[in-house]
Design a protein around this nucleic acid. Structure first.
Length: 196
DNA sequence: GCAATGATTTACT
DNA sequence: GTAAATCATTGCC
């Protein structure tokens, strides 16, 4: 079943990022449903420098993060990669969880077709830019609401024990200074679909 | 209006 | 392991 709106609207974005492990992200693009279990996330808050909306800076790009929890925020990075985020917290509180990797479950054939030939089958969705491409996510998904759009998150009853959750430093945000050291990246221990 | 930059991926050494 | 590719968004001129 889909996660309730109340799940996203809580104020502790780090806790939400942790609880999203084991949940399933699905999209429906071109009439085909694709998706998988989330195995890697990162938390971002407007209270720290790693976030685009640091210090409440709102721009045309990140204004979705200021919406209430439950919206999808798609950000184009390095000119060619779409990154998928889940907005959390109340309206005006710009927190979000970046989905970095998932384990494919639904629509394997479609995802392979979108990604093309791969040297390593584990590279299908083991990275934020890869999984969006595999699932057909582009900037048209920006601002969609996860309870009534073509993208949503389900709880399939999978429980990831806290022993199997690893917290580590986030990736690629050295510019954030001290905040780059926050252990806000969560991965499922030993899962092959986690990015490097 | 224009140059600088980045929450990455891919290929090559 | 390292480097190049590549472009929307941003912030300053």
């Amino acid at each position: 079943m889909k996660l309730a709106e109340s799940f996203y609207k809580r104020s502790n974005v780090v806790k939400i990022a942790r609880e999203l492990l084991g949940k399933c992200l699905f999209t429906k693009a071109a009439g085909v449903v694709t998706g998988g279990m989330i195995v890697e996330t990162e938390a971002y808050s407007w209270k720290e420098r790693g976030c685009h909306a640091f210090d409440g800076r709102m721009t045309a790009r990140n204004k979705i993060m200021f919406e209430k929890g439950g919206h999808a925020y798609i950000y184009l990075c390095y000119g060619m990669h779409n990154l998928f985020n889940v907005v959390t917290n109340r309206k005006g509180m710009a927190d979000a969880v970046l989905i970095r990797a998932l384990e494919p479950i639904e629509g394997l054939n479609e995802m392979k077709k979108r990604r093309g030939e791969l040297q390593n089958p584990f590279h299908l969705t083991s990275g934020p830019g890869k999984l969006t491409k595999a699932m057909g996510i582009d900037r048209n998904f920006n601002g969609k609401f996860l309870l009534n759009g073509d993208v949503w998150i389900e709880d399939i009853g999978e429980v990831v024990k806290s022993k199997h959750i690893v917290a580590s430093e986030r990736i690629g945000i050295d510019y954030a200074g001290e905040d780059a050291k926050l252990p806000w990246r969560f991965t499922v221990k030993g899962n092959k679909w986690v990015s490097r």
